[in-house]
């Protein structure tokens, strides 16, 4: 094994890991806000990928225009999703909400197939298909774009939660809804905003990952479950945990596929998940929280 192949795999792993991290963040933000895992989170990346392909290939819009429209679309999508899958069930236990998000997920997948057909679509690349050569290490420029865009988004998010009032209100809502309400925060609005933000993260993931994979109705499912694994591996409920867990899984997956077995590539995330659950259930970066008696 030579170091340049390994470095190439690290970059590829970090790029895929960034996608997992973005979707995992969406999981965690929604979970923190409403204590429910959104099983349609992967579809939050599948839907924008289709929308972007459609805008670019059929309407011939520029890449920048496509991004803007897709983000706006996904913002609206987030609100609609919250109103249908979560809001009517907000006072019930987590099980009906999970099932309802699974239902919406299946609806979206089959809706995408109905509208766009079963054939895989390819998204026009905003970057050159030529690999860049860094001192003998060949890297797909799209990987660099994915990693840089993710870093930029994370920077924005840090600023948003630390420095803006809206971000603070969202954090307060996630910590203690009742207290937040007493302080005059509109909790229902904050929850809706969380869904919007989470689905915009999905938009970023979908647009970034589109060019390196084919866009299919099933692309979201695998990204979704792996992103969830990432958030557990990192420590469920923790924002840094979701990011680091995503990057970690992305890299491990590429290496395991290369050195162990490429047929079982999709299984490694779960094997790591089960190992983490066995050895360190609170996740690598998480803290153990006990239910109060």
């Amino acid at each position: 094994m030579d170091w340049s192949t390994n470095l190439q795999m690290v970059v590829a792993g970090l790029a895929m890991g960034s996608i997992y991290a973005l979707v995992a963040l969406g999981f965690v933000l929604i979970f923190n806000a409403v204590n429910v895992v959104n099983f349609a989170q992967g579809e939050f990346a599948m839907v924008p990928a289709f929308v972007a392909v459609w805008l670019m290939s059929y309407l011939n819009l520029s890449f920048a225009m496509t991004c803007v429209i897709t983000v706006v679309f996904m913002g609206i999508f987030g609100i609609v999703f919250e109103r249908i899958a979560y809001y009517p069930l907000r006072n019930r236990s987590f099980l009906p909400v999970i099932i309802s998000t699974i239902g919406v997920g299946i609806f979206l997948k089959n809706g995408a197939q109905l509208i766009f057909g079963a054939e895989p679509l390819s998204m026009p690349r905003p970057t050159s298909p030529e690999a860049l050569n860094f001192f003998g290490v060949f890297v797909d420029p799209q990987y660099i774009v994915i990693i840089l865009c993710t870093l930029a988004l994370l920077g924005f998010q840090y600023f948003f939660f630390e420095k803006t009032m809206l971000g603070k209100k969202m954090l307060a809502t996630a910590q203690d809804k009742q207290m937040a309400r007493l302080l005059g925060i509109r909790v229902a609005t904050m929850i809706a905003v969380t869904f919007v933000y989470s689905s915009i993260l999905g938009a970023a993931a979908g647009i970034l990952v589109g060019p390196i994979f084919f866009v299919t109705k099933d692309m979201g499912a695998m990204i979704g479950v792996k992103a969830f694994c990432s958030s557990i591996v990192g420590g469920f409920g923790s924002i840094p945990g979701a990011i680091l867990g995503g990057l970690f899984l992305g890299v491990i997956e590429v290496f395991a596929a290369y050195y162990v077995s490429s047929a079982y590539r999709d299984a490694f995330a779960f094997i790591i998940l089960i190992l983490v659950l066995l050895l360190r259930p609170q996740g690598i970066f998480g803290e153990k929280i006990a239910e109060k008696a």
Binding site: V97, S100, G103, F107, N110
Partner: peptide, 13 residues
């Protein structure tokens, strides 16, 4: 499958 999925959500609600 879409009708099926919509059914799931409606049943839950």
């Amino acid at each position: 499958m879409m009708v099926y999925a919509a059914g799931i959500v409606l049943i839950m609600i």
